[in-house]
């Protein structure tokens, strides 16, 4: 079935919802562009579904490794002032963040 005939998988509302979860503000043209791009990504994933993956374990990692762990050893921390220097706002030893609750 050609793409044009499929109902769009991602609606305008879906994009708004995801943008809200990701704290992104999108302009009207950006919103439409995102919708198109997300749809084309999902269409591509649909094509992958055509592959027969019987007997193939679901993969979450591209490297065939397990059990990478470290010993419980304390190492020196990062200098606090250098850390705080990255922050837009600080009070003494603390990071300062804007009002949390929306009105």
């Amino acid at each position: 079935m050609p793409d044009a005939e499929r109902p769009p998988m991602i609606s305008r509302e879906d994009v708004l919802h995801v943008a809200r979860l990701a704290r992104l503000e999108l302009s009207e043209p950006e919103l439409e562009k995102m919708r198109e791009q997300l749809n084309s990504i999902l269409t591509y994933i649909d094509r992958l579904k055509e592959l027969d993956v019987t007997g193939v374990e679901p993969t979450s990692h591209a490297v065939p490794m397990v059990n990478v762990m470290r010993d419980d050893v304390v190492v020196p921390c990062f200098p606090r002032d250098e850390m705080l220097a990255n922050a837009p706002d600080r009070v003494g030893e603390f990071f300062r963040v804007p009002r949390i609750i929306e009105d």
Binding site: R70, D72, V73, V74, V75, C77, F78, R80, M83, L84, G92, E93, F94, F95
Partner: peptide, 21 residues
């Protein structure tokens, strides 16, 4: 002694932001 994913100490009551990376 150290954090879940890094080697920073977990001591309770340390000066604010002194145990980070």
């Amino acid at each position: 002694r150290s954090k879940m994913f890094c080697g920073c100490a977990t001591t309770f009551g340390a000066a604010p932001n002194s145990q980070t990376c």
